[in-house]
Design a protein around this nucleic acid. Structure first.
Lengths: 229, 229
DNA sequence: AATGTGAATATGTTCAGGCAAAACCGGGCA
DNA sequence: TGCCCGGTTTTGCCTGAACATATTCACATT
C-alpha cells in the first residue's frame, strides 16, 4: 500500500509532535523511509523537504535530517487591501481623500527610500471607513520619478493602493508593525483622543530595485492582527 | 542547454515582474514550458508550484496557471525566543521572575483557551532585559491540567518559554498583534509612563487539541517588528 | 599534533513516463 | 430549455533510476 507524500509528511509530523522522534534526534534517511512507507525516494524527499521549509526539521547533506530543537516558529500574515478587509467583515467600505500635494521628497523619506537629491513625490492623505466609522488612516508617499503618471491620476474616488496594484505588476516590500500614540491629526481623523495607542504598519515598496512608495497605515484603536500557525 | 528548476522559476518570476505576463493572464502550460526551457515537465512543475506557494500565480486543473491579479501579499515573520532576539542584537540578556502564583483559571482565560470549569493554572509574570534595560514584559498562564509538572518547575533562573519548548515538542498556536496603552504595572516594569503606546503580542498554544498556555508579551516603547517579502 | 586526502554517504536535482483527479466543453436526451 | 454524461485538457502526483554536490570520517602525511 504505497503512501502519498501527504501521508508520509503527516506521519512524520505526527511522530515529531508525539515526541516519538525527539527534538534534536536524527530521523531515518530517505532510502529507509521510502522502504518503510513503500514509496519512491522522491516521494519521501518531497515530504521531508516541505517539513524542512516549514521549519520542523533541519537537513544537511551527509549529516542527515534531524528534528529541530526549537522549531523555528514562523507566522504568515495576509496583507489584504483595506477595501477587501472591510468588506470581508460584512461592513460597507467608504473612502475619502483628505489631502493631496506634490513636493520635493523630505529628508527622512529620501533616506528611507534611497531617493535622489531632487526627487519629487506625491503626498496623499486618505481615510478608510467601515460602516461610516473611521477604520484606517493612510499617509502615502509616491515617487514621481518612477511613476510620473501618478501626478495625473485621480485619487478622489478610490485609494492609491488599488491604483498601485494595477500599475505595478509586482514588487518587493519591507513591512513593519509598531504601536504609536495618536497625535492631534490622527485623533481628529480616527475619532479618538490624542495619546491613544494605535496599531500602525509601515511599508516601503520597490520595483526592480527602485523605490516606488512608502505608506504609513494607522488603524483605529483596538485593532488587532491575528493569524494561526 | 537544460535549465534547473531555479532557472525556470527565476525566469517566470522575471516575466511576471516585468509585466511580460500581465496580471490575470494565462501562462503557457507545463508541457510547453518544458519545451521552451528544454527540461522535464517535473522540473517546470516544481518551479511553478513554488511560485504558486509563494502566491505569485494561481493554478487550477484544466483551467491552467494564471498570474494573480493582486498577488496575495503575505509576510512571514519569525517568532524568535526573546533570549535569542536580544542576543542576536549583540546585547546581554537578563531574565527576572516577578511573580508566581497557582490559581483557578479566571473566566476570560477559560473562555480563551476553552478550559474546563475547575481548571487550575500557573500564572507567571516575568521581565526580559537587554543590556539591563527593560525589553519585554511577559504575562504567562500555563494550564496545570496538561502540564502538571509546571507546578514544580523552577522559573526563577530561566523563562517559561524556554522551559515550554523543551517540554512540548510542537504545537499549534494563534497569535495576535495589537497596540495597548501602558497601565501602571506595565509602566513601572518597562520604565515608561502610563498611557504610553506599547506593541503587544498575544499567543495561545495548543498541543493535540488541548490548551497549554496563553501569553501576553509587551515590548518596550518604540519596538517594531519588521520583515521583507 | 595538525593537516591534507580520498572514500563513503545523505541529500539535492533531474529525467521520462505514466496514471489520477479536477474542471471545462459539448452533445444527447428528457 | 435544462440536465446529465462522457471526452479532453491541464495540473497533481508517483515511480525508479541516475548523476550532482556537500559533508563527514578515517587514514595517511607532514
Amino acid at each position: 500500500m504505497t503512501a502519498t507524500y501527504r501521508d508520509v509528511k503527516a506521519d512524520i509530523l505526527d511522530k515529531i509532535t508525539r515526541g516519538v522522534w525527539a527534538p534534536g534526534s536524527l530521523i531515518p534517511n530517505e532510502v529507509e523511509l521510502a522502504e518503510t512507507y513503500d514509496c519512491a525516494r522522491a516521494t519521501v524527499n518531497r515530504a521531508v523537504r516541505e517539513l524542512a521549509d516549514a521549519g520542523m526539521v533541519e537537513r544537511r547533506r551527509k549529516a542527515g535530517t534531524r528534528v529541530r530543537m526549537a522549531p523555528v516558529r514562523q507566522a504568515r500574515f495576509d496583507i489584504p487591501l483595506v477595501r477587501k478587509e472591510i468588506e470581508d467583515r460584512g461592513a460597507r467600505y467608504r473612502y475619502a481623500l483628505v489631502h493631496r500635494d506634490v513636493l520635493p521628497a523630505p529628508d527622512w523619506l529620501r533616506a528611507r527610500l534611497k531617493l535622489g537629491g531632487r526627487a519629487e513625490v506625491l503626498h496623499l492623505v486618505c481615510m478608510h471607513y467601515a460602516d461610516g466609522i473611521p477604520y484606517q488612516f493612510e499617509d502615502r508617499w509616491i515617487s514621481l520619478e518612477i511613476l510620473p503618471q501618478a501626478r495625473e491620476a485621480d485619487f478622489s474616488q478610490s485609494g492609491p493602493n488599488e491604483w498601485l496594484v494595477a500599475e505595478i505588476p509586482f514588487s518587493d516590500a519591507e513591512i513593519s508593525f509598531l504601536a504609536v500614540p495618536a497625535d492631534e491629526t490622527l485623533a481628529a481623523h480616527l475619532g479618538c483622543r490624542a495619546g491613544d495607542a494605535l496599531f500602525q504598519t509601515e511599508r516601503s515598496t520597490w520595483w526592480q530595485g527602485r523605490a516606488i512608495t512608502f505608506v504609513r497605515l494607522c488603524f483605529r484603536p483596538g485593532h488587532r492582527m491575528t493569524t494561526r500557525y
